[in-house]
């Protein structure tokens, strides 16, 4: 088995608990992401999703363990790893266009001014921001438009890995749907590797190739890796008709509602904690791609 594009090996994060001891958020987490893959991570608040995100972005250091991308260990933030923050993090004194050129200029310092601007406009247009609206300040945009700008800024930089930290968490359901579609469209054209945190099960199924499920903290771990066996291109109205949709959805709901608690608090004992691979496919007796792994259908009602 070849090394994945991004691999997280034995990553442990502890914080002081304020009473002289330490609080272990997660321990020896070990998983990988392949190039071009769209991976979502689901779990309850406090299980360390955002900590994992910050470590991948290079904004925080794990207590121990390594993150390797393309075979090299990463440390510190880098333009190779673009981040879309939940609160958009646009610079409010810059116009929409300037917020995107800010990133492009950082990424391609030797591009001409005209080239930078044309590139920024192209990516803004991909998320539906064209014309005079690009000269508005972020405060004059709706929440959905601000997140579009943030997504355009991240994609325009062509990062090797794109990190999305609950990008739609603060948006209403209708806007969220529209921007999810736009995200799928822009992602489809780039083969970008994406790692995304979300709380929304339907969003995760619509967007992801694979969903990582985390147990509750402390001593949280990435317990399962569920493959989304629904072919692309996906469409929110069609995927619910797919025979696998509710099987996968029920499995996820079961996990988050029940098993995330039951599996919580298990210490690793120093062993790497890799997620169990779960494939749910009801479309017929398809050949198992890797017959040596766990049973094809895990019990969903245990």
């Amino acid at each position: 088995m070849s090394k994945p594009f991004l691999s997280i090996e034995n990553m442990t994060q502890t914080f002081p608990d304020g009473q002289g001891g330490t609080l272990t958020v997660f321990e020896d987490a070990t998983f990988g992401i392949d190039k071009g893959e769209f991976v979502c991570i689901l779990g309850h608040s406090g299980c360390g999703k955002s900590t994992i995100m910050n470590i991948l972005a290079g904004l925080a250091e794990p207590t121990s363990g390594v993150v390797k991308m393309d075979g090299f260990e990463v440390s510190g933030p880098s333009l190779d790893r673009g981040v879309v923050f939940q609160n958009y993090s646009l610079l409010p004194w810059l116009s929409t266009l300037k917020n995107v050129t800010f990133g492009v200029k950082a990424r391609y310092p030797d591009w001409s001014k005209a080239k930078v601007e044309a590139h920024a406009r192209e990516y803004l247009a991909m998320v539906g921001l064209e014309g005079d609206v690009v000269h508005r300040k972020p405060s004059q945009l709706s929440g959905g438009m601000r997140q579009r700008v943030s997504i355009a800024r991240a994609f325009a930089n062509h990062p090797k890995l794109l990190l999305l930290d609950e990008p739609f968490g603060a948006l209403d359901a209708l806007t969220r749907g529209t921007i999810q579609d736009e995200l799928l469209k822009i992602w489809g054209g780039t083969e970008q590797t994406v790692f995304m945190i979300t709380h929304d099960i339907d969003e995760a199924i619509l967007l992801a190739d694979r969903i990582l499920l985390m147990t509750n903290g402390p001593f949280a771990r990435v317990a399962e890796s569920v493959e989304i066996t629904i072919p692309r291109p996906r469409n929110r109205t069609d995927i619910v008709e797919h025979p696998n949709y509710y099987a996968i959805r029920n499995h996820l709901v079961q996990f988050l509602g029940q098993r995330s608690k039951e599996l919580a608090g298990q210490q690793s004992g120093g062993e790497p904690q890799s997620p169990t691979r779960v494939v749910i496919d009801k479309t017929g007796p398809a050949p198992d791609p890797e017959p040596t792994t766990k049973p094809q259908l895990r019990a969903v009602n245990d």
């Binding site: 972005a57 904004l59 933030p77 333009l79 923050f85």
Partner: peptide, 12 residues
């Protein structure tokens, strides 16, 4: 801190 993080992730 968000704005500082934007600067950091853009390697300024």
């Amino acid at each position: 801190q968000d704005w500082v993080n934007v600067a950091r992730t853009h390697e300024l």
